[in-house]
């Protein structure tokens, strides 16, 4: 079972019928030349990469830009079209006055599987009181959170909000909240390794690509910045496969993880089993 925990569905044809909305997405998500293509092609691309399931996430920037980039309802629509291949995560702008109601609706009515938050893009600090109210909703529904941590390519999104060390207080105050630090918190990968080592409820994903080809960049970050055997020997149950699709092709990120030093059992955990536990879907 291979699960990609970090994908963006905003240019799938089934939710991209309106040219103005497509242009808004290109600008807000900083994917300036992204083509629209059908969900069936995404499934074919997953098949070619050997990926069984992908987490697709909404993105809510209502208070900053006046709209969602992808709404919770659009994520729900896509999941309903491919329920065996897609796992839907909600997004809520913590600065919305109705944030708690929107999240309650996403979990109770839309049946989405978790929450995606981007502190830099949505402009909040991880221990902001408004964000903490959302964490409590997630605990109530036993839903995990994927934070976009470290650097985001998205414009007008200061990294001061998403330094991984800011999430340590969240891990301490909410030990029952499972959350993942997206992009392995790059460039603070050593700090993220510390958080993974210390806090049972903290996960991270491999959706990091900032220089070079995926294999070269993974060699730099996972074999040099971190120790070559750190994931294999210690962090194997805390790291999940993620790609940042469509910012890069999933097949290339699978190839990059396959180039890392991992024993078979540890590789299975990184590629999918950890995600199942994170999602609360472990049998």
């Amino acid at each position: 079972m291979i699960i990609d925990v970090y994908t963006f569905p905003g240019f799938l044809k089934e939710i991209s019928q309106d040219e103005e909305r497509i242009a808004f997405r290109r600008e807000q998500y900083f994917l300036l030349k992204q083509h629209v293509w059908p969900l069936s092609l995404f499934v074919t691309q997953m098949n070619a990469a050997g990926i069984d399931k992908s987490i697709i996430s909404a993105e809510d920037v209502t208070t900053k830009a006046g709209d969602t980039i992808v709404s919770n309802e659009e994520v729900k629509l896509l999941v309903d079209l491919e329920p065996d291949r897609l796992i839907g995560f909600a997004s809520v702008d913590p600065n919305r006055e109705d944030a708690i109601e929107v999240l309650e609706d996403a979990f109770s009515n839309l049946k989405l599987s978790g929450l995606k938050l981007s502190p830099a893009m949505q402009r909040f600090y991880p221990m902001d009181e408004k964000a903490q109210q959302l964490y409590e909703v997630c605990i109530k529904y036993n839903k995990p959170i994927i934070f976009e941590a470290g650097m985001t390519w998205i414009k007008d999104s200061p990294t001061k909000y998403s330094n991984p060390l800011l999430f340590e207080d969240v891990a301490i105050k909410y030990p029952d909240l499972r959350f993942s630090l997206g992009h392995f918190g790059w460039p603070w990968v050593r700090e993220v390794a510390m958080l993974l080592l210390k806090y049972p409820n903290v996960y991270a994903d491999t959706a990091l690509l900032y220089f070079d080809s995926p294999k070269q960049f993974f060699n730099t970050e996972f074999n040099n910045t971190l120790g070559e055997f750190w994931i294999d020997r210690m962090l194997y149950n805390k790291v999940m496969f993620g790609s940042t699709y469509p910012r890069i092709e999933q097949k290339r990120m699978v190839g990059a993880v396959n180039s890392l030093t991992l024993r078979d059992e540890q590789r299975r955990m990184v590629m999918g089993e950890n995600a199942l536990r994170f999602l609360g879907m472990e049998e």
């Binding site: 900083f30 994917l31 992204q34 995926p214 890069i248």
Partner: peptide, 10 residues
Amino acid sequence: AHFLHTYGRT
């Protein structure tokens, strides 16, 4: 093999 700022992708 690098990020393309004109595309927003690698």
